[in-house]
Simulated scan of single mutants.
Amino acid sequence: MPQVAAPKRKASKSGVDADLVRDLAKVLDDTGLTEIEVEYGELRLRLARTLTMAPPPPAHTHVVHSAPAPAPTLSPPQAPSSQPAAAAPAPAASHPGAVPSPMVGTAYLSPEPGAPPFIKVGDSVSEGQTLMVVEAMKTFNPIPAPRAGKITAILVADSQPVEYGEALVVIE
């Protein structure tokens, strides 16, 4: 196979052909490449472009607004109970029965739009039963119940983005 000689170019005092460098830089711009390497006999030339990226947008905070608590009503005194008073309920997300999201994605409470949800508050679930699906990279991943119990809270809305480790539901 015959070899084709590289075109003769005029080298600068440093031995590098400035026109060649400009031509290669234009190839980088035209093609969107970030790096190109060319070899002509003894000359080996590598051009690389450094891309600067804009800083990521600030994270949005999800704020849940709730209705104000009803005004307390007075009731007649009751006889002392043998049961100890229940402690104030802990936030649902830190509840020991909270089921965390195993991935970042979008939570869907039903298998398809318009279909009934997988679970409702008050439902009893068995271990391994699908609680919801989380879409990540166009894949719908079922979130199974880690244990049997009763659903006491659903902490996400349908089509809501979720983070890794974010509490999804509470099973007691």
Score class of each variant (00 low, 15 high):
residue 55 P to N: 10
residue 147 R to E: 10
residue 106 T to F: 00
residue 51 L to S: 10
residue 141 N to L: 05
residue 99 V to N: 06
residue 55 P to A: 15
residue 108 Y to F: 15
residue 128 G to R: 00
residue 55 P to D: 15
residue 45 L to F: 05
residue 82 S to L: 14
residue 43 L to D: 13
residue 98 A to I: 10
residue 139 T to C: 00
residue 90 A to Q: 12
residue 121 V to S: 01
residue 149 G to L: 06
residue 72 P to W: 01
residue 60 H to P: 02
residue 68 P to M: 08
residue 57 P to T: 12
residue 142 P to A: 10
residue 42 E to S: 13
residue 121 V to Q: 11
residue 64 V to E: 13
residue 47 L to I: 09
residue 44 R to V: 12
residue 113 P to M: 11
residue 68 P to Q: 08
residue 84 P to L: 13
residue 76 P to C: 00
residue 122 G to A: 03
residue 91 P to Q: 11
residue 129 Q to M: 01
residue 109 L to N: 08
residue 49 R to C: 08
residue 92 A to Y: 00
residue 96 P to T: 10
residue 42 E to Y: 01
residue 142 P to H: 12
residue 79 A to N: 10
residue 89 P to N: 03
residue 55 P to L: 07
residue 44 R to M: 10
residue 117 P to Y: 11
residue 153 A to S: 11
residue 148 A to P: 01
residue 103 M to E: 03
residue 74 L to G: 07
residue 64 V to Y: 09
residue 81 S to D: 12
residue 45 L to M: 05
residue 146 P to R: 03
residue 145 A to W: 03
residue 100 P to T: 06
residue 98 A to K: 07
residue 88 A to Q: 10
residue 86 A to K: 15
residue 156 V to H: 02
residue 131 L to H: 06
residue 127 E to M: 12
residue 71 A to W: 09
residue 108 Y to W: 04
residue 132 M to V: 06
residue 92 A to G: 04
residue 41 G to W: 00
residue 48 A to S: 13
residue 42 E to F: 09
residue 47 L to E: 08
residue 66 S to P: 00
residue 144 P to S: 06
residue 127 E to V: 12
residue 76 P to E: 13
